[in-house]
């Protein structure tokens, strides 16, 4: 069955689909066919559920209010028609399925607490400059970093440490 899981992984072709979670306001960019033309349509709303995991069989549901009427659209994670998913607002929820929002009307309809730290902080740091990247700790990560730097032909960061030590002695 190990073979099966690797087969399923190969078929899950959309990458970069694991940044969003339940409670986020998103814009889903979907390719649609109009006669002979193909164009991107945006469906924006709140993610109210993630079902069957994030593999080939996984789906997520986006809920939005259209002229006072709730509309839910279910997207498979790995549908080739999905161009990308953009987060417009990070949400923090205490449930994995936001079915309770279906009973809400008006302003409250898609109200979810905003997420400040955690996943948002990490993703925003990744988007920002690479210097801000959090260094992975541990022997394995260190060895990998060293290997990568050597492959790039840059000096290993070990020297930095030595210099610092020297400075210390002088002072």
């Amino acid at each position: 069955m190990q073979l099966m899981s690797s087969i399923e992984k190969e078929n899950a072709k959309n990458t970069g689909m694991d940044h969003f979670d339940v409670g986020d306001m998103v814009e889903v960019h979907v390719w649609i066919v109009e006669g002979e033309k193909r164009r991107v349509q945006i469906f924006s709303g709140l993610i109210t559920r993630i079902k069957h995991g994030r593999g080939v069989r996984g789906t997520f549901t986006v809920r939005r209010i259209v002229s006072g009427l709730g509309v839910e659209r279910i997207f498979p994670f790995h549908c080739p028609n999905i161009e990308k998913v953009e987060i417009t607002r990070y949400g923090k929820t205490r449930r994995s399925k936001l079915y309770y929002l279906r009973d809400r009307i008006g302003k409250e309809a898609l109200k979810v607490k905003e997420l400040i730290g955690g996943r948002r902080k990490r993703q925003e740091a990744e988007k920002g400059s690479s210097e801000k990247k959090v260094k992975k700790r541990g022997k394995k990560a260190k060895a990998e970093r060293k290997k990568r730097l050597e492959a790039e032909g840059k000096a290993a960061p070990k020297k930095k440490g030595k210099k610092k030590k020297g400075k210390g002695k002088k002072a």
Binding site: M1, L3, M4, I7, E8, N11, K13, W31, V56, R57, P76, H78, C79, P80, N81
Partner: peptide
């Protein structure tokens, strides 16, 4: 082995048995 699904280019799901 198992049933799963694969995607067509057009975005259709094909239920398959491996």
């Amino acid at each position: 082995l198992q049933m799963t699904q694969v995607w067509k280019e057009s975005g259709e799901i094909v239920p398959v048995t491996v």
